[in-house]
Amino acid sequence: MTLVTDQDGNSLDDAGRYAEKMARKKAARDRIMASKQGGKGLVIVHTGAGKGKSSSGFGMILRCIAHDMPCAVVQFIKGAWDTGERRLIETNFADLCQFYAMGEGFTWETQDKARDIAAARKGWEKAKELIRDPAIRMVLLDEINIALRYDYLDIEEVLAFLQAEKPPLTHVVLTGRNAKPELIEYADLVTEMTLVKHPFRAGIKAQAGVEF
């Protein structure tokens, strides 16, 4: 049996070993945190084939609301849907969060490319207006990656705007699968949702409280 001792040579039982291990971990973590300084407005991307991209974005919006931080949402695709997050925000938090549903449904629903492009452009103009306002701390661009994927919006234009006009402390969250490589390269934080299993493939439709 190996005798475990602390830094002063005292023997340790299981609880003591655990406490010693956690103390070392905390000290290392404190050193890391001490090296971090200040904050900045982040460009955040949620992409990938898995579920949870919009859900994560709206989770951040609710955190902003809880901190009394003004925020805004622009929905690029699912604007025609009656979603739970839209009901919640518009009914209870309209004073803190502006909500704009600019899309008209998925591309296979509208079946009109010119109409889809016009809706995307309208959503982007509203997004620019909101991002330019330094009083708004976070802007969620929900499903904008789909509009970018189909070239309804120009990725270079979007990146140029974020670089030139986004206020230093404003966070911008862009969701949707198939994020452009240029956007992934530019962003500060990128999360890819990986699809492992989804009930839709087993014949189960989208359900309130889970998907919308």
Rank of each mutant, 00 (worst) to 15 (best):
L195W: 10
E157P: 04
D142K: 04
E125H: 10
P167E: 08
K180E: 15
A179S: 01
R132N: 15
D151C: 13
G176S: 11
W124N: 03
G123N: 07
E182N: 14
F200Y: 15
D133Y: 04
R201G: 14
L162I: 07
R177W: 08
L130T: 04
R201Y: 14
E182G: 11
I144E: 03
V172Q: 08
A179T: 06
D188K: 12
G123V: 03
D154M: 01
A202F: 12
I155C: 10
L183G: 03
L189E: 11
E165Q: 12
E156P: 01
K180T: 14
E182V: 08
A179L: 06
A206W: 08
D133L: 06
G203C: 07
V139Y: 02
D133H: 08
L159S: 05
K128R: 09
L159N: 04
K166S: 05
A179Q: 07
R132G: 15
F161K: 02
F200I: 15
K166Y: 03
T175Q: 02
F161Y: 07
I144A: 10
L169K: 13
E156S: 14
H198K: 06
Y152M: 08
F200E: 12
L195M: 15
T194V: 13
K197E: 12
G123S: 05
P168E: 13
L141G: 03
Y152I: 00
L140R: 03
L148S: 08
F200K: 06
P134S: 13
R137G: 09
K197P: 05
P168Y: 03
V139P: 00
L169R: 12
Y152D: 08
I204C: 05
Y152E: 05
L183C: 00
E129T: 09
P167C: 09
D188I: 12
E192A: 11
V172L: 03
P167M: 03
Y150I: 08
L141E: 01
L189N: 06
K166N: 06
I155S: 03
I204T: 11
L174W: 02
E182W: 09
A187T: 07
I204S: 09
G123W: 02
L141K: 00
G203I: 03
A187D: 00
L169C: 12
A187Q: 07
H198E: 06
E182Y: 15
Y152K: 02
T194M: 12
L183R: 06
A206E: 10
P167H: 01
N145C: 07
I136W: 01
K166M: 06
N178M: 14
N178E: 12
K197D: 12
P167Q: 01
R149L: 14
A164I: 08
L162R: 00
T191F: 00
V190A: 04
K166T: 08
W124V: 09
W124R: 06
D154A: 03
T194A: 15
P199Q: 11
L130K: 05
T175D: 09
A135N: 13
R132A: 13
N178T: 12
K180N: 14
E156Q: 13
L130F: 05
I155A: 07
M193Q: 06
W124E: 01
K180R: 14
V172W: 00
A164Y: 01
R132V: 15
T194E: 14
V139C: 07
P199V: 12
R149C: 14
E156A: 09
I131A: 02
V196Q: 11
L183S: 01
P134H: 08
I146K: 05
T191S: 13
D154Q: 10
P199Y: 13
E143L: 05
T194Y: 09
A164K: 02
P199W: 12
